[in-house]
Design a protein around this nucleic acid. Structure first.
Lengths: 334, 334
DNA sequence: CTGAAAGCGCTTACAG
DNA sequence: CTGAAAGCGCTTACAG
């Protein structure tokens, strides 16, 4: 079934396209009787105007782009749903693109958003460390986008609206909580602090905590590799095999937390250590397996990020905002 | 930064818009030297053509719409990622819209896709039972879409490409496996079989299995309500409190499986029953908690659904396909 | 209150 | 191989 155009409707109604357009855009300017008649005809014909044509004509789009690393990850799934809520509320559409957490794809995703001439983009950068010249390139892309963008979750320190969690502070308070409970040897499993801004922040938080608690950092308790389940699993195996003494473990993301759990359950030592993870791990509560974790409300972050974008679109010149969200420490085992 | 247009490039290059357009669409028709020159200029100016303008001009879109119930649900998250893989491979963009598993939103989502003039839509219907007149309305919407659509996961029996799992057969074989292992009293926790096609299928599968195993259906073992964790939780509590005898339980979706686990772990009776769930539940393997489940590869379903759509776009007149995927029964406890 | 006309940024059939 | 012109389906400033 071919879609009708505004001309078809105009013809059926015996008016000009202008008038039909007006009943859609400024109905108050059309005489009531003609307006009704046209509305009636549009409805009967199931007429739906083309967003493509309107966008081109208005030089403005009705869709917002979202770039995330991986939608299958619950953290980003929730984030996405928060975004969705606000976008829908504002009658906008959502153009989705993953960057697979790969820098290369980051560029492609931004190019795509530009080609599509979206109204704005919500952007969780894959690229999130100051590699040689890369930040400059990203900045160029962002500037060339022709629309506002909000940086989410990873603070790449560009001059733009941004929102993220205060992970440094959260990890610090995790360390302090553990110290207060008497832990002196706290293992730390993290991503690569040299290649990842979030990992850097978390490591700094760890050190902040140790310092404030008056504990000296022990090299053999610090593992910084990949944000993958297998990395934490191997790290734990290593700690256990070498019989390095420790009483608590902090894991710096959801995957690492899972790897930790896998290792200690496999070794039958789940109850021997106090663990604090980052982000809630599903199913544990249902299975009555207590766990401690730093709770970050990514749904809320999604909502706020979308609000930031919407307000930027409405007020292009408002001051740049950098929102820092406070995670909560949820303690179940101490 | 304002986006450049094809006219800007033409001017800089001292050629007509036509020629610039040609280097993008049919470069072989342009003399090499001019082509190079134009390419060079486009690159230097960071020119990106507007998809909006192109779509309008070509009367064809480069984006595909996806309508799913809830992206936060792992089943749909995986489905979505499968779709994404194929869509990206074909250089198309993805317009996302949730229907929140609500019939009302189904209509809105389809309207939105039509307004956006997408190239095709991948559609997991919220509406999936033959309510009064509703199916007719959905059909009308789909016909009015002006582009092909593929129905996913819920078989609404319309004349269109569709893909779904053979849940009936899967549940039947689950029952037979249990019967073979000696189970005679198999509890069954399901969604509403009257309002939901999938629930109907699963219930039929249950009955098929019982029949073939020569077991008579016991009313007190059948719970059909909502596909929610809490429903299964309450169903289990009910069974346990009333001390109704049973040795095995089949739960008909992921949420119900979680509710089951919650109830038996809370009651300390996790090891007393043989459970078969539908879809894998995360974390159980890592925690070394054995579980049986019907495995449905929703990532693969997403891939195949997208392939169906792409082939339909390429060959509008090819025969309608109805793909039935076979789930696998994964046994860990018997 | 209404309409003719120009314009949004592309593509493409046609002519040269 | 190249370009002028018409067209895609809308919107909107302008004139009436």
């Amino acid at each position: 079934m071919k879609n009708l155009t505004i001309s078809d409707i105009a013809q059926k109604a015996g008016v000009s396209k202008t008038t039909v357009s007006r009943v859609m855009n400024s109905p108050e300017k059309v005489e009531e009787s003609t307006r009704r008649k046209i509305e009636q005809i549009m409805k009967a014909a199931h007429y739906t105007p083309s967003a493509t044509a309107r966008n081109l004509s208005k030089q403005a789009s009705s869709t917002v782009g979202v770039i995330v690393p991986e939608i299958g990850n619950a953290f980003f799934g929730d984030l996405f749903m928060g975004i969705e809520e606000i976008i829908n509320k504002n009658n906008l559409s959502l153009l989705y693109c993953s960057n697979e957490d790969k820098v290369q794809k980051d560029f492609e995703a931004l190019d795509m958003m530009r080609t599509q001439r979206v109204k704005g983009v919500l952007y969780v950068p894959a690229m999130n460390y100051p590699a040689a010249g890369m930040m400059g390139k990203i900045q160029k892309k962002l500037e060339g986008l022709g629309c506002p963008a909000v940086c989410i979750d990873r603070d790449i320190h560009l001059h733009m609206d941004a929102i993220h969690f205060d992970d440094r502070k959260a990890v610090k308070s995790a360390v302090l909580s553990l110290a207060k409970a008497g832990h002196q040897r706290i293992a730390f499993i993290n991503g690569n602090a040299e290649k990842n801004i979030l990992a850097t922040e978390r490591y700094e938080g760890y050190r902040d905590g140790l310092r404030e608690a008056g504990i000296s950092e022990k090299e053999e308790l610090v593992y910084q590799g990949e944000y993958q389940k297998s990395y934490a699993y191997l790290a734990m195996k290593d700690l256990l095999e070498k019989e390095i003494p420790f009483t608590a473990v902090i894991t710096c993301n959801n995957s690492l937390g899972k790897g930790y759990l896998q290792a200690v359950h496999e070794a039958g030592r789940a109850d021997d250590f106090t663990h604090i993870g980052l982000d809630k791990i599903e199913m544990l509560d249902l299975l009555r397996i207590p766990n401690n974790y730093i709770l970050r409300d990514s749904y809320e972050m999604g909502r706020q990020a979308a609000e930031l974008l919407i307000s930027r679109i409405a007020f292009p010149d408002r001051k740049i905002q950098n929102v820092l969200l406070e995670p909560t420490l949820v303690k179940e085992t101490f």
